[in-house]
Computed example of a mutant assay.
Amino acid sequence: MTTQRAEAETYTVAYDGRGARPSDEPVVVICVLTLRRPDHLAVTLRSLKAQDYRRPFACVVADNDPNGRAGAERAEAMIRAGEIDGVAVVVSQPGHCSACNGAFAAARDLYPGTALVAMIDDDEIAEPDWLRRIVEAQERSGADLVGGPVLPQFERPDAGRFANHPVFKPYYIAPGPVRFLYGSGNFVMRAAVLDRLGQPYLDPVFDFVGGGDLDFFKRARDAGFSAYFEPAARAVETVPASRTTLRWVIARSLRYGAINYMIEHKNARSPTERLRIWLKSGALLGVGLIRAMSRLATSRDLLIAAHPMLEAIGRVTAQAGLRPEQYRHRGARPS
Rank of each mutant, 00 (worst) to 15 (best):
A143F: 06
F154T: 10
F162D: 05
P152Y: 12
V146N: 00
G282M: 11
Q138H: 12
C100W: 13
L116E: 02
E136R: 08
F217N: 08
Y261D: 01
A88N: 07
A297C: 06
V13Y: 06
A105E: 11
I250K: 10
R243F: 11
L194H: 10
L284S: 09
S270V: 06
L302W: 14
G102H: 07
G198V: 10
G210D: 00
K280L: 09
E127P: 03
Y201F: 15
D195M: 04
V239R: 01
A223S: 10
G160D: 10
A20H: 14
A118D: 02
P324L: 14
R5K: 14
A332R: 11
R46L: 09
A220Y: 07
V239E: 00
Q51G: 08
R247V: 09
A88M: 10
F217S: 10
L279Q: 12
Y182W: 12
Q51H: 06
G257K: 01
D16A: 05
V28F: 00
S253E: 09
L45A: 03
A88I: 07
G148W: 00
Q93G: 03
L322Q: 13
P308D: 08
S23N: 11
A107T: 09
A305E: 08
P231T: 01
S281C: 14
I79K: 01
G148H: 02
P66V: 03
I304H: 15
A115D: 14
A251S: 14
A81W: 03
L110Y: 06
V249P: 02
W130E: 07
R108Y: 01
D63P: 08
A6V: 13
A159D: 13
A137E: 00
V188C: 09
A75H: 05
S184D: 07
L45S: 02
P94N: 11
V61C: 05
S141K: 01
Y15I: 04
D39A: 11
G257C: 04
G314Y: 05
A251V: 04
R255E: 15
M119L: 06
N267E: 15
V167K: 00
Q199D: 07
D144V: 02
V91Y: 03
S92I: 00
V316D: 03
G321M: 07
K280F: 09
R46D: 13
N260E: 14
F229G: 02
R221K: 12
S92W: 01
A283K: 11
V32Q: 01
M293Q: 12
P200L: 05
V236R: 14
F225H: 12
Q153G: 07
V249M: 05
E25T: 13
A77R: 15
A191V: 06
A58T: 09
R161D: 08
D144N: 13
Y228G: 05
A77Q: 15
P204H: 06
P152A: 07
L151E: 13
R54G: 15
G113H: 13
R291G: 00
G224I: 08
H165A: 04
S270A: 11
R221L: 08
L45H: 06
P38I: 04
A191D: 14
R269Q: 14
P38T: 03
A103D: 10
A320H: 09
P334C: 04
P177I: 05
I125G: 01
V178E: 03
L214W: 02
H329K: 11
L310V: 03
P152F: 10
Y256M: 11
E25S: 12
R295T: 10
A99G: 15
W278Y: 11
V178Y: 02
F168V: 03
E83Y: 05
A191Q: 13
V29P: 06
S92T: 12
